[in-house]
Amino acid sequence: MSKRSARDSRGSRAAAWAAVAVLGGFGLLPVYWMLATALTPAQQTFRYPPSLIPTDLTLDNFANLADEPALARYLFNSIIVSVITAVLSVVVSAYMGYAFSKFRFRGRRSLMYFVLSSQMFPQALLLVTLYALFSAYRLLDTYTALVLSFTTFTLPLCVWMLKGFFDTIPDSLVEAARVDGASRLRTIHSVILPLSAPGLVAAGLFAFVRGWNDFIFALTLAGREKTTLPPGLVNAFLGEATAQWAELMAASLLASLPVVVAFIALQRFLVGGITAGAIKG
């Protein structure tokens, strides 16, 4: 390698690291600020000018969460609705995605775009409709209302994501299974789905995170007993004249742990799952 190309290579690497540092800082700074606020005594939360590094550290804000027994209920509700939303979204979108990918029928493309079209108008518009609908069927304040509303928004993207994944699986594999005597369902369950694990995990994680983070639907459709973490935390820590930011950050930090753990455990599936089909010609 010539001196010049070695210099260029070092320059490129430095630029790449600089870019990673800037983008990483951009992504991680809010998380750092959340952690720093959670560890700052409540009296110092509003210190002006603010300090990037807390001078006094405390775990009181975490300890104070024990005085909020409702948080455990919010956490439980969040886990229930997010997990069910993820499972339901994956199951339904797997069959839909497979049908769009491997079957040829009149109106297939139009139907695919129709599924996607639900993403084209504001969710708040659907909120009023869903509220009235769930009210008419006495589903308000139930897990069912939350799961159905979350799934409404996760399905289109999951279907397209999985369709793209199924497109990467050669049709010859399906035909080989048929030649060996497998039924359509057997082909899907024993051949296609095992090969699609990364895509299914990616779709499931997307749906889980969507359900976990939702605020407005959970706020409106879930009653006091079925409230999930996002509206629950707002209810608990933000009032008319007060804002308990330190405790809110401590609770938010704990609330984000399940999602972090899920991502760490499943990250190896993620990249392949999300980008599958993106380069399929």
């Binding site: 139009s110 775009y113 129709f114 079209s117 639900s118 084209m120 108008f121 518009l125 659907l126 009023v128 409709t129 009235a132 609908l133």
Partner: peptide, 13 residues
């Protein structure tokens, strides 16, 4: 289709 779905949404409302 988006316009149609929007109309359906509004109709639903």
């Amino acid at each position: 289709l988006g316009a149609g779905a929007g109309a359906l949404g509004l109709g639903g409302v």
